[in-house]
Computed example of a mutant assay.
Amino acid sequence: MTRIILLCFFTIFLGCQPKPATTTKPHNEVLVLGTIHSGHLTDSVYNVAYLDKLIKTIKPDYILAEIPPNRMQAAMDGFKKDDSISEPRVLRFPEYVDVVFPLTKEMDFEIIATAGWTRMMADERNKKLGAIRDNPDRADDWKAYTLANQKTDSLYKATNKVNDPYFIHTQAYDDIQDIGLQMYNKLFNDELGLGGWENINIAHYWNIEKALQKHRYEGKRFLIIYGAGHKGWFLRELRKRDDIDLLEMKPFLDQVE
């Protein structure tokens, strides 16, 4: 009887004790910046000066770049040597040459190379696309691909917001781009192998995931910078994660304006 009374007492006593506080792990913040590559050199608004201000406003701790990991060291070594980029894969992207690398002198962020591309993959893709284009038996496929791209272009131009950074960072922009990209993916992804649309995005995102996993729960801010066509694909995958806070670009664009 005494044992039963004691058990009841301890049950009541323990139930009254304050529960230990649960530790909340700090989420990383993630933004996806869609770029227009060489268009930044000529656009009157969405130019390299605009990108410079935008990245300063975002204040990232890490920039996940559309640079192959095996080309990153050569690019950084060249920049440290004489403030210029000569690495061919990086040289084609003014967002890195004219903005991100120079900003390393003013800001404290780490560039993590995450592109899945290799020169061999790019050459193989171009070779296969050329063969498809020139094959009379694939004329219907090529026509469907061309028409889908034309539809994307016409819808984009009809918005009167071409290269508008606000519009580029909307779901409407991603939906328009998907018209051409999904047709391209449906017709050619498997045939193009590693250079197919779905396949290359998987390769890019695998590297992005590795970086997010490595720095998980640090409470840091990640800025993913890729060509704007990739943005919708990445966002669909990032929304599946429950360990990050995916931020909208608009509030930062507002600060640049």
Results as ranks from 00 to 15, higher is better:
181 L>E: 10
244 I>G: 12
40 H>T: 05
174 D>P: 03
106 E>Q: 07
118 T>S: 12
140 D>L: 07
236 R>V: 09
75 A>S: 09
248 E>R: 10
163 N>E: 08
138 R>E: 08
141 D>S: 06
104 T>M: 03
76 M>E: 13
103 L>A: 05
239 R>W: 15
234 F>P: 07
174 D>F: 04
134 D>A: 12
101 F>V: 00
245 D>H: 14
54 L>A: 10
110 E>K: 15
138 R>D: 10
126 N>W: 07
92 R>W: 05
217 Y>M: 06
197 W>N: 09
95 E>S: 01
253 L>G: 08
122 A>F: 15
57 T>R: 06
214 K>C: 14
50 Y>T: 07
248 E>F: 14
142 W>T: 03
142 W>C: 02
51 L>C: 12
14 L>Y: 08
242 D>C: 08
147 L>R: 07
138 R>C: 08
233 W>T: 15
64 L>M: 03
37 H>Y: 05
12 I>L: 04
24 T>V: 11
133 R>E: 11
184 Y>S: 11
167 F>C: 03
159 T>Y: 03
211 A>K: 06
168 I>R: 03
69 P>L: 04
18 P>H: 07
91 L>E: 06
7 L>P: 15
119 R>T: 14
210 K>V: 14
234 F>R: 01
170 T>R: 00
65 A>P: 10
174 D>E: 06
149 N>H: 09
187 L>V: 01
218 E>A: 08
177 Q>K: 05
117 W>N: 02
185 N>G: 11
231 K>R: 10
252 F>H: 06
183 M>C: 11
18 P>V: 03
232 G>C: 02
142 W>P: 05
133 R>L: 07
183 M>N: 08
2 T>R: 10
191 E>Q: 13
62 Y>Q: 03
238 L>C: 09
153 D>I: 02
240 K>N: 13
67 I>G: 06
257 E>C: 12
172 A>R: 06
73 Q>G: 13
210 K>G: 14
101 F>S: 02
94 P>N: 05
26 P>I: 04
10 F>A: 06
147 L>Y: 14
61 D>F: 13
189 N>L: 03
214 K>N: 15
46 Y>M: 00
44 S>Y: 05
167 F>N: 02
167 F>D: 05
135 N>D: 11
112 I>G: 06
185 N>I: 05
240 K>Q: 13
231 K>E: 03
249 M>Y: 15
130 G>R: 04
210 K>N: 15
80 K>E: 11
156 Y>P: 00
249 M>E: 11
97 V>N: 06
68 P>W: 01
35 T>K: 01
106 E>M: 01
217 Y>W: 14
152 T>I: 01
88 P>V: 03
149 N>S: 10
251 P>H: 02
198 E>C: 09
205 Y>V: 00
